[in-house]
């Protein structure tokens, strides 16, 4: 409910013509998803400094955060975002397809690295000492192991987790029949299907339910550092997904606000060295190869699959998460 209110407030704020302080001061609105709030608060300061140095113009970036899919819907329905920074390309695609030419269909080619300035992956968070001896995906389908992950039909992060499990089984057994069996057994081990990544973290960390949490790598490190080292261990599976949160300029809105240059620069600057350093400090994986090399010991090496190997999000969504897809069949007896 409070997210809903934040959404309304953000929408109203976007509608209000705020008084401009200097003649050439400019504002842009960044519509993003939940776990990036802290990162973008820092990044906005960084970018404002950069932009002032470059053009002498003051820029204020306002932020709106909520579930990724919900944010995409708000933009489609008229939230005047200048840029979107969402959890998966599927949500930006939805804006491109349904949003009355808000942004071009080939938006993902406009920025380097598939428009993903930082990436992440899905790892396991287990209780201290790993009492259930969980080391890889195979252990999640054992009897008596309770797995915590949100509902992939609702949560963007959970879709990455699901696809990682699917990808693991497909790589291991080489056929879809087995992969289907694998994810079915895995989801039968899920006692609570929360509606978002943060809710699942709460279920696991605060309610003490479950033996393993499938989590964003950055959330796992946050959970570990926030609740004190010594309560949880992070387990890196042998294989996972390369999660690419994607960013795009909502060109129609930006042009209307006369902000297309600053909006583009805002996203392009995410790829700069200083921004990439910031990315690392929030436990996202940097896209810049030099920075990645510099911090290589910080991020575990594992085999990472791209969503393209499953035909992209459009295919994956249709096959797995739409009504009567593979995920629904798990629960249809």
């Amino acid at each position: 409910m409070n997210k809903f209110i934040v959404g309304i407030v953000a929408a109203l704020m976007a509608l209000l013509p705020l008084p401009t302080r200097a003649a050439d001061a400019i504002q842009i609105l960044n519509v993003s998803y939940d776990p990036t709030r802290e990162f973008y608060e820092k990044y906005n300061i960084l970018f404002a400094n950069f932009w002032r140095g470059k053009t002498g113009q003051e820029v204020t970036v306002r932020q709106s955060h909520s579930g990724s899919g919900k944010q995409a819907r708000s933009v489609i329905e008229g939230l005047r975002a200048d840029v979107v920074t969402l959890a998966l390309a599927y949500d930006v695609d939805a804006i491109a397809q349904r949003g009355r030419r808000l942004l071009p269909l080939d938006w993902q080619q406009k920025l380097p690295n598939n428009s993903a300035p930082y990436t992440s992956t899905i790892v396991f968070l287990v209780r201290k000492g790993n009492p259930k001896q969980i080391t890889d995906w195979d252990d999640l389908v054992r009897d008596g192991v309770a797995v915590i992950t949100p509902n992939p039909k609702i949560s963007g992060g959970a879709r990455w987790s699901y696809m990682a499990a699917w990808g693991y089984a497909l790589t291991k057994y080489g056929n879809e029949e087995k992969a289907r069996e694998f994810v079915t057994t895995l989801y039968k081990n899920v006692p609570v299907l929360d509606t978002g990544a943060r809710a699942s973290t709460t279920t696991f960390v605060q309610r003490g339910i479950g033996d393993v949490l499938l989590a964003w790598e950055n959330e796992a490190y946050l959970a570990e550092s926030e609740f004190g080292k010594g309560k949880f261990d992070i387990i890196i599976p042998s294989l996972s997904m390369l999660a690419e949160p994607t960013v795009a300029v909502v060109e129609k809105n930006a042009v209307k606000h006369g902000a297309q240059d600053v909006a583009r620069a805002y996203l392009e600057h995410l790829y700069s060295k200083e921004a990439q350093e910031l990315v690392v400090s929030f436990y996202y994986r940097p896209s810049d190869p030099e920075i990645a090399a510099k911090y290589s010991e910080r991020f575990a090496r594992l085999k990472l699959l791209r969503i393209d190997e499953f035909g992209g999000w459009k295919e994956a969504q249709k096959k797995h998460f739409d009504d009567d897809g593979v995920f629904d069949q798990i629960y249809a007896q």
Partner: peptide
């Protein structure tokens, strides 16, 4: 929120919107 066991109608509606 287990499908078929403890899933309420408003959640189904949210799920549809999410798609």
């Amino acid at each position: 929120n287990m499908p078929g066991v403890s899933e309420i109608v408003p959640l189904i509606i949210i799920t549809k919107l999410e798609q």
